[in-house]
Computed example of a mutant assay.
Amino acid sequence: MIEMKRQPTTPGEILNEEFLKPLNLTQRAFAEHIGVEVKTINRIVNGRQGLTPEIALRFAAALEVSVEFWLDLQKAQDLWRLKNSKIKLPKPLKAS
């Protein structure tokens, strides 16, 4: 398994840098376009909230990028955070 040393880019950073800025869209305008509250977009852009499948689907429809793209970004972020947390994992099971 390949270990990730650096934190993956967040979906919010991708949204902001690759879509909102180039399209000259504010968070408010994007939020209104996809039908969510602006605070939701702000939290995602600032890394304080992850993507739900519903939000990923809205992003995909509005930005013509697959829902899997957005969900994969979120999955990478979630797994990185878990692997770098203090979670205690069980030992592997062994056949007796």
Rank of each mutant, 00 (worst) to 15 (best):
V36N: 01
Q77T: 02
N42F: 02
V45K: 10
N84Q: 10
N16G: 03
H33D: 14
K94V: 13
N46T: 14
S96N: 15
E3L: 15
P22T: 10
R58K: 15
R6V: 07
V45A: 11
I41H: 02
A76H: 06
K91G: 05
F69W: 11
P22V: 03
A56W: 01
L25Q: 15
V67R: 04
R81A: 11
P90M: 07
T52M: 11
D78Q: 12
K21Q: 13
F19K: 06
I44G: 01
Q74R: 11
E32P: 00
G50E: 02
T26M: 11
N42V: 06
Q74P: 09
I44E: 00
F59W: 08
G47L: 07
K5I: 10
E37R: 06
E64T: 13
S66N: 06
K88L: 07
T9D: 10
T10R: 11
N42I: 03
G50C: 05
N16F: 13
Q27W: 01
L57W: 01
V36G: 04
A29C: 05
T40V: 12
A62I: 13
Q27D: 00
E64Y: 04
I55C: 08
V67P: 00
Q27P: 00
P92W: 11
L15W: 05
K88A: 08
W70M: 08
G47W: 08
A76E: 12
N46G: 12
K83C: 03
Q77S: 04
P22Y: 05
Q77P: 00
D72Y: 04
L57M: 12
F19W: 15
E32V: 01
T10L: 15
T52V: 06
L93V: 13
